[in-house]
Design a protein around this nucleic acid. Structure first.
Length: 115
DNA sequence: CCCTTGACTATCT
DNA sequence: GAGATAGCCAAGG
């Protein structure tokens, strides 16, 4: 396991786990909050490697659409989960989620952190 | 080592 | 607003 992967994984996990319920973040935002601005695509890989259950469904695309192909099982699953979190959707698009913009999240996650 | 893939994103047409 | 193109970067074959 690469050192890069190890650090990246943990950073991503912490960020995703710290997403406030009822809100969503983009892959790019998560990557940026984790300290890897260019690794939006690696976020998905990191989450897939997570042993602990992560609120992956709170991670959406930059345009606030769901992460998967519309109509697919995963897509429906994510939609249901988000709705149960209180996120309001419109035809598969998030219309009313608090925009964290990684500010409070950044402080929340990286304040007492090591390194 | 080369090539393809991907739960991405931004930009142009 | 939808489709194509180009960057992006690590992982896996």
């Amino acid at each position: 396991m690469s050192a890069f992967q190890d650090k990246f994984d943990q950073a991503v996990w912490r960020v995703v786990a710290g997403i406030v319920p009822g809100t969503v973040m983009g892959y790019g935002e998560v990557a940026r909050a984790a300290g890897f601005p260019r690794h939006a695509r690696m976020v998905s890989r990191a989450m897939g490697r997570s042993a602990a259950p992560l609120p992956w469904y709170r991670v959406v695309r930059s345009n606030r659409t769901l992460a998967f192909t519309p109509g697919s099982e995963a897509w429906l699953r994510q939609k249901s989960l988000l709705e149960s979190e209180g996120v309001q959707l419109k035809n598969g698009k998030v219309i009313c989620a608090v925009q964290t913009d990684s500010v409070d999240l950044d402080r929340l996650l990286w304040g007492p952190a090591e390194e």
